[in-house]
Amino acid sequence: MAKVMIVEDEANLLKLYKDELEDDGHEVLPIDNGREILKYIEKFGPEVVVLDIKLGSQEGLEILEQIKNFDRGLPVIINSAYSSYKANFSSWLADDYVVKSPDLTELKDTIRKHTLK
């Protein structure tokens, strides 16, 4: 289906995402931190990046900026526990915003939306 890169530091959640997305037929690269992200992108060549943003931390937003500077056309979906960042203009660089939920339907739909183009 598509090459999906997931950045998420919660190991259990990362495994869930990986399993679920692989079941849907995606090729998934799960990474648990944003260090050397561009190297992974270059190597893996994802069609979409799912990026966790933590409350009160600039790290996720900085990674978003790096990705967009590197490849403006690569879709990035922010996956945050809270909806607060929706209103933060730094996050407007992202192509979509999905609030974390035990129901992965919305995340899957959004990934599909950005990889079918």
């Binding site: 919660e10 259990n12 959640l13 869930l16 399993d19 679920e20 035990p102 129901d103």
Partner: peptide, 13 residues
């Protein structure tokens, strides 16, 4: 929040 999301996600899985 995250543990609950994780539990709920695995339950669905």
């Amino acid at each position: 929040k995250i543990p609950l999301v994780t539990i709920g996600g695995y339950a669905r899985r």
